[in-house]
Design a protein around this nucleic acid. Structure first.
Lengths: 386, 386
DNA sequence: AGGCTTAAAGAAAACGATTTATTCAAAAAT
DNA sequence: ATTTTTGAATAAATCGTTTTCTTTAAGCCT
């Protein structure tokens, strides 16, 4: 009695819903629009369907599905079996609304097509998927504007946290500060900032640059140029510091003119080309170059080749890059490699720890992971200085 | 004045479109809901707050925000001004629940750290973000199991459509067929299939391989090996076909032993190394190699170098790859380049057209985009055959 | 003046799930 | 024999919006 009543009520609701959908169409083919209402939809099974089919209430079904002690074993079995049979999957959107979280994290990097970032993303993904989070990747393409837009995009309540590596152009951090103040969990990696107090993960750039510079000095180079990102970035400052420390330790003078900043991190080839040009028309030419990032390194090699410069005969090169084909270059490229995968993993673990923390997190850490130096032919000295 | 209102309204609508949600498997959910029920929450302003503050009903506020004619100009102004003041942003999750779509699309590729795919993703992103869709990228790492899991993950009602490039291992397509039958829009790109009737985007692999082979033949090579992906993939068949057609056209015999399949697409270095080994221990050694993908190409070059083979003196190489530093290789690498960015764009446009179609789409197209051939030193013949 | 239209706003249902509060027997305790 | 407890299920509120259905009051006709 009661049962049949609720059934008919349900049917009533169903048909009303269909009607409502159809009315959004401009024409009046009501009967047809039942089948192709508005945009075509993916048909899904809900908890209501199970409840109706078994003559139970939605609350009972919900509890049965999650094994609540309040439900009798027989009912549980019934529900679980039927759910399995009709391949029921909870609607994650409804869950998100209820629980006020989306189980997704946003990642903002300058470019995917960059060996460092794509490896870091693999690290991020490896942790996130295991912990049940989706990863939404977006690129700033080294533009402050695009970074702002894309972060706004992600943040409008659709991600539970953010993994950020700042763009070359970014100076003002208010777009991030605002979100951070509102309580959106975020972790910075690689290109970090002092202005926001949260977890951070970075490579030991000071040591990486120091080691690379020391290596060049050991090989006998004395006028070492440094082509680097924009001065805004943390990695720029850290790498410059390592470079300077190595010079100082070896009593070599620091010449500002040997430091070339590129505001787009090698994304604009002409920018690098110009710097190479300047380098070779200067009165005092460098004998080696330390490049500060993946893109800068490859653009620089391309520009040197275009300018007809031979490596290492005319000039030596060592670069920060995560390519795994440095060996195949002509000549094989000496490189400082960052632990990209591990950095991505560490950043994601830290982020999820904030997201899932039961109380506001106030103690933050900055993890610094070691780089690796690979010396190959591109940093040889001709003639060798034994 | 008026202008600023319509602007804020516009921003409102835009942000509303951007949304993504998570999907989780039933059993996992249980664990997490227990685990993080008191997590710190991102404070947010809702339509209710506005209604309460202004002494209006939520329906009035909702209508005012979207400029309904039913609301008086004064009320509209009041609401819009207040919404602007407290920085109201519609909750995309609630919208998704209501509209039954997430405005997000899922992308499944084998690897991000692959020049072809990262460029294709740039193309995908460029269209998707303009149309107000989030992009969720996931990787199969060439594994059938991971492809299945990740697609299930994406599909459990959290994405509006899927952009798929199949893994090397995939033979059985039932995981995709099932979703397709249920009405989930999907478009295949690069590694496509005949078994599912939908839009597809691919490079002209037949012509690409034909041109590359013809180029090698023109240079005087007669025993051309082909190292390629698993025989399951469409691209494998197409490239093999182009290769065979070129041989046939030039009256060269087709030798099956010269075709080397790799089941993991170069992801496992040893696999390539073994094939190279076989190649050079065979009775009849090849004089040139056509490699069929980015990873295979680089792994192959690494293996040749490790085996002490000089290119092009000992053997010539031309490969499918989208790297933009082919010039920097030793020697500069001849390459067939796919229009990755354009392919990503085309696939995304087609997918969104299905998603937003008012009626079920039954007519599908397969777009075939031309490849480009770049000849460099790696495919020279020594001594030259004039 | 009574009936009709219309403008403007509010109430309530809906999206799909969870959860608190409630009901209703039957069993246990007084 | 009445009250209390318990087991098992349901009703209803909630999450934030949209949208259909009502209501209210003012303005307009005869």
């Amino acid at each position: 009695m009661n049962k049949s009543f609720s059934l008919s009520l349900f049917l009533c609701n169903r048909s009303r819903q269909r009607f409502q959908n159809s009315s959004t169409l401009l024409n009046k083919r009501v009967f047809f629009s039942v089948f192709c209402c508005h945009t075509v939809k993916f048909e899904t099974v809900t908890i209501k369907d199970i409840a109706r089919a078994l003559g139970l209430s939605t609350s009972t079904v919900s509890r049965a599905l999650r094994g609540s002690y309040e439900i009798s074993p027989e009912t549980k079995k019934l529900v679980l079996e039927y759910a399995e049979k009709i391949n029921y999957r909870p609607n994650p959107i409804a869950l998100s609304l209820k629980e006020r979280k989306s189980r997704s994290i946003g990642v903002v990097v300058s470019e995917i097509a960059n060996t460092f970032f794509s490896q870091a993303i693999n690290g991020i993904e490896s942790i996130a998927y295991n912990r049940g989070y989706h990863v939404i990747i977006s690129q700033s393409h080294e533009s402050y504007e695009r970074e702002k837009v894309t972060i706004q995009h992600l943040a409008s309540r659709s991600v539970d946290g953010l993994l950020v590596s700042l763009s070359n152009e970014t100076i003002d951090l208010s777009h991030l500060k605002q979100l951070h103040d509102k309580g959106l969990p975020m972790v910075f990696f690689d290109r970090i900032t002092d202005e926001i107090n949260t977890h951070k993960v970075t490579a030991n750039n000071v040591k990486g640059a120091f080691d690379a510079t020391q290596h060049l000095i050991n090989k006998g180079f004395t006028r070492i140029a440094h082509i680097t990102n924009s001065p805004n970035l943390s990695i720029t400052k850290e790498r410059l510091q390592g470079y300077q420390e190595a010079l100082k330790k070896n009593n070599l003078p620091f010449d500002e003119k040997l430091v070339h900043y590129t505001l787009h991190g090698g994304m604009i080839y002409e920018e690098i080309q110009d710097e190479i040009q300047k380098m070779f028309t200067a009165r005092q030419k460098p004998d080696a170059i330390l490049t500060a990032s993946d893109r800068i390194t490859t653009s620089c090699l391309t520009a040197l080749k275009a300018a007809g410069k031979k490596i290492p005969d005319d000039i030596s090169v060592i670069g920060f890059t995560n390519t795994n084909i440095a060996e195949l270059f002509n000549p094989p490229l000496s490189a400082v490699r960052q632990p990209a995968f591990d950095m991505g993993q560490a950043a994601t673990e830290l982020l999820i720890s904030i997201i899932e923390s039961k109380r506001p997190v106030t103690e933050f850490e900055t993890r610094i992971l070691d780089t690796e130096l690979f010396t190959r032919e591109s940093s040889e000295h001709f003639p060798p200085t034994t």
